[in-house]
Computed example of a mutant assay.
Amino acid sequence: IDSKIPIEPQIQRYYIMQPSISCSRLSDDLKILINNITCTWQRGQFAATGNIKFCSRIDMERAIGQQLKLVINGYEFIMICEQPSTSNRFANNSYSASIRSRFAELAAPYQRERNYVNTVDKTLAGIMADILENTGWTLDNKMIDYPIPEGAFSYRGLTPGAALLKVASSIGAILDINDTTKTVSVVPEWPVNPWSTEQATPDVILNDALILEHNTRDTIQPEHNVVFVRGEQQGVACKIKRQGTPATDYARDIVDNLITDVQAARQRGTCELARSGNKRTATIRTKLKQDLPPIRPGSLLGVRFEDELYKATVDSLAVSANISNQGAIMVNQTIQAVRNV
Rank of each mutant, 00 (worst) to 15 (best):
I205D: 02
F90K: 03
Q83R: 02
L317A: 08
N35D: 15
L139R: 01
N88D: 09
K289L: 14
V341L: 10
F153K: 00
E198D: 07
D121V: 06
M79I: 04
T281L: 11
Q267S: 11
L301C: 05
D249E: 15
M79Y: 13
S94N: 10
D140S: 12
S96H: 06
A107G: 05
N51R: 12
A47S: 08
P293T: 10
L68R: 04
T86D: 10
N193R: 02
I220F: 11
K166H: 04
S154N: 12
G136D: 02
E82D: 05
N36S: 14
C55Y: 15
N257Y: 10
Y310Q: 08
R275V: 03
L292M: 02
Q10W: 09
D2W: 10
A47P: 00
Q267A: 10
N118M: 07
T201I: 14
A318L: 15
G65Y: 04
N215I: 11
R296T: 11
P246R: 12
P188C: 06
N322E: 13
T183F: 06
Y116H: 05
A152W: 07
F228A: 03
W195H: 12
K142T: 06
R304W: 03
R13S: 04
I171Q: 11
I240M: 03
Y15F: 15
V227L: 08
R43K: 15
T201C: 09
N73W: 12
S170V: 01
N207I: 01
T248F: 09
N322M: 15
V319M: 03
S87H: 06
R217C: 05
T216R: 05
R25Y: 03
E223C: 06
R304M: 03
L68I: 13
